[in-house]
């Protein structure tokens, strides 16, 4: 029999974080919640007499699968916004009612049946599982081996990008840049004249004006940039020691 306290703890750390799938906005938070769910499920397996599966659950799910998810999140960018337009009308309510109905249906059926519980618990120790896997289920094991190889090759094929055009040399890249009139050199690094957190301060060009393009796009997306009013004020301040030079430049662009 199962310890009720343990059961309720497992129920809490599986159901509550999994609700993040429905309500959380940021995908990374959802991934971390699902990691917690996986750990809770591992605890459930150990409770139910399957220690090997519990360890495999932690290694495979929290260690490999969820980290793969976070890795893909890094590749596609965490700033992917979810659009909330409905392609099918009332899709949200239909989906919610369907899922709730499915849950109520399953729970009502499971609570109605009564199965006599075996007196002696099972032993899910690795040696027992191993004998089972390589005796009765050895064919399934081999088929799963094929499946894993196929999946690995499939992932390679799907993510491989064939080179359609010959590789562009540095010289060609540079010529194209000059032809379209873009800045022929690299973007300047931000924060050359660091005042506080240097990455959010634009670099200054030779005339002393800030170069907006030197600030990372990511900082702008997260609203972590400075407005620049305070910097303009110090730049335009006539009492600064080098203000004569500043005055001539700031008059030119009409500030």
């Amino acid at each position: 029999m199962v310890n009720p306290v343990l059961f309720w703890i497992i129920a809490a750390i599986t159901v509550i974080p999994s609700l993040a799938l429905l309500f959380a906005r940021k995908t990374v938070y959802i991934a971390m919640s699902i990691v917690l769910v996986m750990v809770g499920l591992a605890a459930a397996y150990v409770t139910l007499g399957a220690p090997f599966l519990g360890v495999v659950q932690i290694v495979v799910y929290t260690g490999a699968v969820m980290m793969l998810f976070v890795f893909v999140l890094m590749l596609v960018g965490v700033d992917q916004r979810e659009d909330l337009r409905e392609t099918i009308r009332n899709q949200r309510w239909i989906g919610l009612v369907t899922a709730l109905g499915l849950g109520a249906f399953l729970v009502s059926i499971v609570t109605r049946v009564s199965i006599p519980v075996a007196e002696e618990g099972v032993s899910g120790e690795p040696d027992v599982i191993a004998f089972m896997l390589f005796e009765r289920y050895v064919l399934v094991m081999e088929v799963l081996g094929f499946l894993l190889i196929t999946a690995a090759v499939g992932a390679l094929v799907l993510t491989h990008v064939p080179r359609l055009k010959p590789r562009r040399t540095q010289l060609e890249v540079q010529r194209d840049r000059v032809r379209v009139g873009a800045d022929p050199v690299n973007k300047p690094m931000p924060g050359v004249y660091a005042r506080h957190n240097a990455l959010d301060v634009p670099a200054l060009d030779p005339e002393g004006k800030p170069i907006e393009a030197s600030i990372s796009r990511v900082l702008e997306m997260r609203d972590q940039t400075q407005e620049g009013e305070s910097f303009r004020a110090t730049l335009d301040d006539p009492t600064r020691p080098d203000s004569s030079y500043r005055d001539s430049t700031s008059k030119e662009d009409g500030r």
């Binding site: 029999m1 199962v2 310890n3 009720p4 059961f7 497992i10 129920a11 599986t14 159901v15 999994s18 609700l19 799938l21 429905l22 995908t27 769910v37 459930a44 139910l48 992917q80 979810e82 659009d83 909330l84 949200r92 239909i94 989906g95 919610l96 369907t98 899922a99 709730l100 499915l102 849950g103 399953l106 729970v107 499971v110 609570t111 049946v113 009564s114 199965i115 519980v117």
Partner: peptide, 26 residues
């Protein structure tokens, strides 16, 4: 406590997963 409670827990988790598949666009 009867282990059948874990099956009920599994049903609830399954429903939450199904709701996520049906509702989320990401």
């Amino acid at each position: 406590m009867d282990p059948i409670n874990f099956v009920i827990l599994a049903a609830i988790l399954f429903a939450i997963g199904a709701a996520a598949v049906l509702l989320r666009r990401n």
